[in-house]
Design a protein around this nucleic acid. Structure first.
Lengths: 235, 235, 235, 235
DNA sequence: AATGAATGAGGCTTCATTCAT
DNA sequence: CATGAATGAAGCCTCATTCAT
């Protein structure tokens, strides 16, 4: 995403690169992590050679796909956090709670949290990916510095959202950002590969139930201690 | 229960078969769905020839593994349902709520439901498998008659538990057995392959939060309608 | 060659293995070091799978070919050394120099040396191989323990032949076994790939001239010091 | 000398061409005959496109490299022959044998022959190349008209040197220029790719021994008949 | 019946060559 | 013209499956 490691690709090369990542994301989601490289190339409308010129091997492609997808997730979470901050600073919004979205009745920070956890269909599919790859590939993904950085920044953003929601009293106090990330990634895993009405409904309902479980009225103490995203780093 | 198509194997052959399934289950859990057949055979201490004598091809082995695992899950759920029924019929138990497990305070049917959803580590690993196999293999699994039957029986058992819990007022009324099955399989997906303390804690906490979300005090109506396990059949 | 690392192959497997090595030796000689593995398999009348079952990768095959060829060279040199020793111990032979082969007039030790350096056509072709492989593969060859051992034993045998020939005064005293090995491997390199009358003659003449240069009448001191085969170990 | 088919390149284009040949020569010597075209282009500091503009395909590049190297060898041999002829015509030199280099005691023609066979390290490396290329490429090299011409001219030059040395009695009479060329190319083959002190010494010693074998005192008749360089043309 | 050897289709990757910028 | 991106044929290797011992 940043300029660091990108020596300014030619326009068409750049276009190809983006198309390959998008195609690969979809292909992994549709056909599992073993889609032949040639299939991906074909779907992207390029030759295998081009694919390999951009990504020296399958692992590099997987890493790029995950990196891209996480970057988008991070951007979305950040946008949610920022709009929350903006709203908090805006007297107009603050002044009239009556105009608030009824579904947002729990409080602004809660809404921001929920919002940040409402990934697009494509993103949710990508979230499934990590769990699908072979242990070796998964290790390569975790070892990637860019991915590590994005995860760290994502953790920080989510931490802020979690703390704000707990401060306003809408999120149960005995959970950490790690718990929240874990639960929502679970919901995403549950999605079947192909877009499917039932899967969508099941996801929406699961998410709603999970959110109910996260609200600020625990019936019983949770086992263990609040998990931070750091606790899940090796997952 | 499984006598139908099984022409009564000799004891040692039967032992071989069981060991292969156990080994394969472990191998899939440890190394992902792509473990070579030869590796499985080696781990099971038999030649590939023997493996292929029992399971005509890789798909047949996978189906057998899933079938075996689901059968165990079903047995566990049934035991939970039965003990609930027995308890319900037993005045002694009914008479003295004070002796109840504090964690079980929500009611007997709730406890039975929770109990049926507390799979062993090995089982939870196996539950992940289905989502790991290629779409083709996954389709073969769903098409297997024995698996279909087990799923149906499991659905019936879970339906009963869900209805009982709703009857006693401990489970929110706007969920179906499909929602429950979905949520719990989600929690299981989250487990990483290797046994890992953090993953265990994350699982336990996620499960607790999900159960809180399932309790009988919804804050907002759920989208859609209660899902039955039939709704999820194609998942 | 020894039983150490060979867990007793099944008869047909053993036959296949031998045929693959023989075929590969010929194929490398005919078509250079880049012959496709599939071509070698085809020529040997086996499937690629069989080739790869015996030799995990191309490098392993090359190492086996070189190992095999060096072992034969060693055996031949040893036979020459032994027959020399036997002859030396046999009074009948000793008694009548008049019956000696005229071409052997230089002395028994000289004959033994020359004899040990008269490799078969196939062997000479194989000797070329080492110089043909890529640096990486050549390094693998040198790193092979069996090859190292054979080279050492070969060096010892050649040392004895060289010393004996120098003792009887037929070999110039300012050369070592390293010089001899080097020169004769050179002659072998000169052979073109395909059997070819001109190449044969050129080889025979080159060998004769080199032998003349090695005889005990140096006209000028050689540069450097006598080379041992150890000096050439890394070559 | 090479103006025939060369439509007069621009100076910088010429410089590019020369650099590519020099780079390729070095690359072949360092990394074997399989260096990728792209690697050669990179080392030469040009794009592949430029490389292909100069040399329509890999074979053309190899041919150019060999051609270039042989031309240098020819020039050197000619210089040796010419200085011999000049010395022969110069009474001053002839008059005072006492001033002769001690190592040159065998006679002027012998010295000229030896001198012409003392290639630089780089050249000797290049000489190895021919034997490293695949049979197909080697055939293309032999089929190249320019190379054929250079070889013919080289043969004529070497013939003259050989005859002169035999006339002065320093070279054994039963060898031809083909034998000489063959033996010396052998010595060069022995050089390992990287500059290496041991290889250098081994080469010098082998060359000295071979020269001893070529001196005018045959101990036994050579097999076959004197080889001309023509006899070796197909080698 | 058990074993493990043989087979070959299929996936990964490289690199000579062509072509758009 | 130079550049380097794109292409795809071809080689390496793996592994599901079959078959001889």
């Amino acid at each position: 995403m940043t300029a660091e490691a990108r020596p300014r690709l030619r326009a068409d090369a750049r276009r190809n690169r983006d198309r390959i990542i998008a195609t690969a994301t979809q292909a992994f989601a549709d056909d599992g992590p073993d889609v032949p490289m040639e299939e991906i190339a074909r779907l992207a409308g390029v030759g295998v050679g081009t694919l390999y010129r951009r990504f020296p091997d399958r692992e590099a492609l997987v890493v790029a796909v995950v990196r891209d997808s996480l970057a988008t997730t991070l951007a979305r979470a950040r946008a949610a956090a920022d709009s929350d901050a903006a709203a908090a600073a805006d007297p107009a919004t603050k002044a009239d709670p009556a105009t608030a979205d009824p579904a947002a009745a729990e409080g602004r920070a809660w809404d921001a949290l929920v919002n940040s956890l409402n990934p697009s269909h494509e993103l949710r599919l990508t979230m499934r990916l990590t769990s699908l790859f072979s242990p070796t590939t998964a290790a390569a993904v975790r070892a990637d510095p860019a991915i590590t950085r994005i995860r760290r920044e994502y953790a920080e953003t989510l931490d802020a959202l979690v703390l704000a929601a707990q401060a306003e009293g809408s999120l149960r106090p005995d959970v950490g950002s790690g718990d929240v990330a874990h639960l929502l990634s679970l919901a995403a895993y549950g999605l079947s590969r192909a877009p499917d009405a039932t899967a969508e409904i099941a996801f929406d309902r699961a998410r709603a139930i999970i959110l109910d479980g996260l609200r600020a009225h625990p019936t019983a103490p949770l086992p263990g201690h609040p998990l931070t995203t750091t606790d899940l780093a090796s997952e």
